[in-house]
Write a protein that binds this DNA or RNA. Structure first.
Lengths: 156, 156
DNA sequence: TTGGCTGCAAATCCTTTGCAGCCGT
DNA sequence: ACGGCTGCAAAGGATTTGCAGCCAA
């Protein structure tokens, strides 16, 4: 069993998004699809401003309000994830690119690294179960400091 | 070895705070101490408005700006922790009351519960070490949904 | 005395919203 | 054609900041 979902094509994305929109009384527009694509074309965590910049670069006209509104939709539909790392602006990430992961934030260089650990996931579920709940989601960030002068996150 | 620190007295608090202020060119004022005390008198997670309300109730005059400025100081000094749970306003918590813990947020009733797990802590350190970092801090929240109609968090 | 505090109000930053016209269905 | 979108600009909410007077050290 591979925890990584297979890479998703633009067609798949579009199909999924249309499905969601159809079942939620929403309309499929060029602006919405453009934002979704930008998110999946990029491997980074994008802020609202990043998305606006990218759109401008590609000469895709879209307003800030629409970016906000669309990102909300994408998060609700499960196509995007929203992260608020301390000391960072709010960022969004493609949700279907690969399997679940959490984040390490280097407090020296601010770089964000991803990690995944089976045991961690299992324990979290156990803890919630003991409290009579089932996991909806979790947020888990490790803030670390370099042990050497040249921050490994900076060069890795 | 007990993971819970012993309860801290107001005198201890004051001493610690003064130490921090002294080494950071800060002044010990009645407003600052009042806010620190409010935080440690209360077992809840307090928002800025909560603190302002409590101060008003006790007829301790303090402005919103000072509350913000003081909370920053307290967080920097390690006397307070700041939490931003999704769907909640930003809240602050006394840091020296008991040992480290993380939080469960019930998405049904919004109640916040605390948890601690040794394995979880150990694994997190291991993960960071593998990346060449040492833990500065971490944020870890589990968002759960009730498995029964009457939310156990609501009544517990 | 001096530099750091405080309160106040204004300023900022991020995000949301009302509205008029546009467009997917 | 209808109802949901979009852009714009204004509104909102949370937090920060400039400033004049105050106060701890």
């Amino acid at each position: 069993m591979n925890r990584f979902a297979s890479k998703i094509s633009n067609d798949d994305l579009e199909t999924r998004f249309k499905e969601y929109l159809y079942t939620h009384n929403g309309k499929f527009t060029s602006e919405r699809m453009a934002i979704l694509k930008l998110l999946y074309e990029d491997d980074e965590h994008l802020s609202v401003d990043d998305i606006l910049d990218l759109a401008r670069q590609k000469e895709i006209p879209v307003s800030r309000a629409t970016v906000y509104r669309t990102l909300d939709l994408l998060v609700q539909s499960g196509l995007a994830k929203k992260h608020q790392f301390e000391g960072h602006e709010t960022v969004f990430e493609a949700a279907l690119k690969e399997g679940h992961h959490d984040h390490i934030v280097c407090v020296d260089c601010n770089k964000i690294t991803e990690f995944f650990n089976d045991d961690l996931e299992r324990i979290q579920n156990d803890i919630l179960a003991k409290h009579g709940l089932v996991m909806v989601k979790h947020t888990h960030q490790l803030y670390g400091k370099c042990t050497v002068n040249n921050c490994p996150n900076r060069t890795s």
